[in-house]
Each structure stands twice: as C-alpha cells, then as structure tokens.
Simulated assay, not measured.
Amino acid sequence: MHSFIPPQHFFPYLTWTDIQTMPNKEDVVIIQPVGAIEQHGPHLPLIVDAAIGVGVLGRALEKLDASIPVYALPTLYYGKSNEHWHFPGTITLSTETLTAIIMEVGESIYQAGFRKLVLMNSHGGQPQVMQMAARDLHVKYNDFLIFPLFTWRVPHITKELLTPKEAQLGMHAGDAETSIMLAILPEQVKMEKAVAEYPPEHPESSLLSWEGKLPVAWVTRDISKSGVIGDATTATKEKGDRILESVADGWVQVLKDIYAFKQPQTDE
C-alpha cells in the first residue's frame, strides 16, 4: 500500500491514538503528493507524474534524517489534465474539483492538529491550482503553513544531462521524464515506441513562449501529434538514476527547511 514510501513515513499506517499522542504536531511535516493520470506519448504509461512524485519522495525520505518527523499521505493520482484529454486514457478533474479536494484534505489535516502541509505536485498543468488552494487554506487558518511546491523546482542536475534543445523545449514525456521512469518503473517503459517531437518554435523576435514568463494557452494536440513534447529516444536508465538521486537530494534539503520554518510574526 505504501509503494515507494518507507512504511514508517506513511501516514495511513498510523493509528488515531498515534496521532492523538504525537508530540509537537505543529512542526510535523505532512506531504500530499499530487500527480495525474494522463497520456505521456506511446511509450510511457498514464501514471508518469504520480510515479515520479512518489518515487522521488520515497527516495528523499530514505535519505532524510530519521529525527525529522515527516509523513506522506496517499498520492492523489487524478489532477487537472484537460490539456491532454484529446488523447485516450487521460482522466481529468476540473479546477473546482481539484481545489475542493485539496481544501478538504487540508482542513482534515488541520483538525488533526498538524500545522505544516506540503502540496508536492508533479504535474505541470496545475501548479496554479496548488498555489491558490494553499493561499485560501492559509487565509482560513492563519497558523496553517502550506507549501505549494513543484517536484522539479528543487535544485537538481537534470538540465546538465540534456541537449540544449531538450533543456529548452522538452516539456512532456521527453528525455528527462523517460529517463527517470526507466529508473523508477522500467518494466512499464516501451522504448521501442519512443519518439522525438518538438513544438513549433516562436520567431526569434517574439517574446512569447509555450511555457515561461509570457506563455500562450495551449492543449497538447495543438503542438504535438504523438503526445510527446521533447526527445524520448535519447533517454537512458543511467541518466534516470542520476536524475532521481539529484531531485531526491533537493527534496531532502527542502524538507529540512520546512521542518525548521517558523511563521513570521509582525508587530501589531
């Protein structure tokens, strides 16, 4: 049931009396992994985002100092994935439904006495939902500290392992995601079906981008026939192992930071 998460860090394995008597609950870090069930090209399974999130988190928790109390909730496998729903198999929640789930999970964690919740999101189509829900939870409960984090935003070496073109344009089911899946769930990767497909490039004079500071709203079929946005053919398990370790190391550091974080107090 705990998948890649070390069992001693898996929240559902606790009893209610474990939680009732847990010391210093205001400093205990609770993590809600959030993924997606959506197409990732012809070579990767629908579970990619959720698998990467729980794989990275599990490795990070294996490395984390045992004195730091961190518990992972069951992964929320469904997310807001409507940019992919023209491809069969994608399952999507609406923004409203995903927000409601995050809010209600957060309220349950708060009522149990915890005051630190990490939204560990691994799907690029929903960071804004995490951020808005986090702000609303903090507005509702001022002493509730919510951290809406994207799995790939911690320091890591991934771009050093990619070609310049892939580092710039590879956004979905390309080298990085395929490589890390070869490290996490190799039996579910069909490398013989891997393809390379990049989105149309904007003119050099244009300030617009597909993802970046000045983005254009798009759905996947606008910019990819295969569902891949990047080059999956260059992926290797060796790269995936290095990416997994690097991203996990970044998460070890951020979890330490969250455990030590105190809410700022301003003079009234």
Rank of each mutant, 00 (worst) to 15 (best):
F4P: 14
Q8L: 11
Q8Y: 10
H9N: 15
Y13L: 15
L14M: 10
L14V: 04
W16N: 13
W16G: 00
T17C: 10
T21L: 14
M22W: 12
N24K: 09
V28K: 00
I30E: 06
P33M: 06
P33C: 03
A36I: 09
G41Q: 07
G41F: 05
P42D: 00
H43A: 02
I47Q: 11
V48W: 00
D49E: 10
A51L: 11
G53T: 15
G58Q: 03
G58D: 01
L61M: 07
E62A: 11
L64F: 01
L64T: 00
L64I: 03
D65H: 01
D65M: 04
A66T: 14
V70K: 00
Y71C: 06
A72Q: 00
L73R: 01
P74W: 03
P74V: 05
L76T: 11
L76I: 12
Y78K: 09
G79S: 07
N82I: 12
N82Y: 15
W85Y: 13
H86N: 15
G89Y: 06
I91H: 10
T92H: 08
L93R: 08
S94H: 09
T95H: 14
T97D: 06
L98T: 07
T99F: 11
I101K: 05
M103C: 05
G106F: 04
G106Y: 06
S108E: 10
S108L: 07
S108R: 11
G113R: 01
L117N: 05
L117S: 04
L117K: 04
V118P: 04
L119K: 04
G124S: 06
G125Q: 01
G125S: 03
G125H: 05
Q126C: 07
V129T: 14
V129Q: 10
M132I: 15
R135M: 13
R135T: 13
D136G: 09
L137T: 03
L137V: 07
N142L: 11
L145T: 12
F147P: 01
P148M: 00
L149A: 08
V154F: 07
T158S: 15
L162S: 01
T163P: 02
E166F: 01
A167I: 03
A167S: 13
Q168R: 15
L169P: 00
A173S: 09
G174S: 02
A176V: 02
A183Y: 04
L185R: 14
E187D: 15
E187Y: 09
Q188E: 13
V189S: 05
V189R: 03
V189P: 03
E192D: 15
A196C: 10
A196G: 09
P199H: 10
E201S: 07
S205Q: 12
L208W: 09
S209I: 00
S209G: 09
S209D: 06
W210L: 07
P215F: 02
R221C: 13
R221P: 09
S224P: 08
K225Q: 14
G230P: 02
G230I: 01
G240Q: 00
I243D: 04
I243H: 07
L244C: 03
G250E: 00
W251I: 05
V252I: 06
Q253D: 12
V254N: 05
V254A: 08
K256H: 11
K256F: 06
D257S: 06
I258Y: 01
I258H: 01
A260W: 08
F261A: 11
F261H: 12
F261V: 04
E268G: 13
